[in-house]
């Protein structure tokens, strides 16, 4: 786990206001922790130790509490990921529709294995659990977007487009 970073963590006034507004929805400020972590991840690419300390100070909770939450949820990255994070669902419905050969295809296209990032920092491949898109399997999630009803040709095309973007 890469936690050290030299980047100073600081939310803008507007971001702090957003967090303050969210706090009013709950009885205790701890509840907005996931939103704070999402914001950190969006801003800095992944969640650093400094980020966790910042979140802890912001919410008045311990760093250990924040670390516990960060490591519990699969959507938080504690190390840098590529610009495009290819999350390949391989759960049963996708697997029955060829998700593993799709994963292999992506690995060979990008010349990396799952869990790795391309040297140019453009792509990371992850194998993930059910994305709730079983009716349009196989599916991969790239950053926030779902790409459904895939096959090898489509996936090659998508990667090509992302490279040229």
């Amino acid at each position: 786990m890469k936690l050290e970073s030299t980047v100073e963590v600081q939310f803008s006034e507007q971001e702090l206001q957003t967090i303050e507004n969210l706090k009013t929805r709950y009885l205790k400020p701890d509840s907005v922790i996931l939103e704070v972590l999402y914001l950190l991840q969006e801003k800095y690419g992944y969640i650093t130790r400094e980020g966790m300390k910042y979140a802890a100070d912001l919410l008045g909770i311990t760093e250990e509490h924040v670390l516990g939450v960060v490591t519990f949820y699969s959507m938080f990255n504690t190390q840098p990921v590529g610009k495009y994070h290819l999350q390949v669902c391989t759960n049963v419905s996708c697997m029955l529709k060829g998700a593993y050969s799709l994963l292999k295809k992506i690995e060979s296209e990008l010349n990396i294995k799952k869990g790795e990032t391309t040297p140019d920092g453009l792509f990371t491949i992850s194998e993930v659990e059910c994305l709730g898109s079983c009716g349009t399997a196989p599916v991969i999630q790239i950053n926030e977007d779902y790409y459904e009803d895939l096959n090898e040709e489509k996936v090659t095309q998508i990667i090509k487009e992302l490279k040229n973007r």
């Binding site: 709950y26 205790k28 509840s31 996931l34 509490h65 516990g68 519990f72 949820y73 699969s74 659990e129």
Partner: peptide, 24 residues
């Protein structure tokens, strides 16, 4: 309330802990 990737948070008491900002 947006979750963050944990199947167990669909269990009702884990869901409540998640809303409270804890591990699910």
């Amino acid at each position: 309330h947006r979750g963050a990737g944990a199947y167990i948070c669909g269990e009702e008491s884990a869901l409540m802990n998640s809303i409270e900002g804890k591990r699910g």
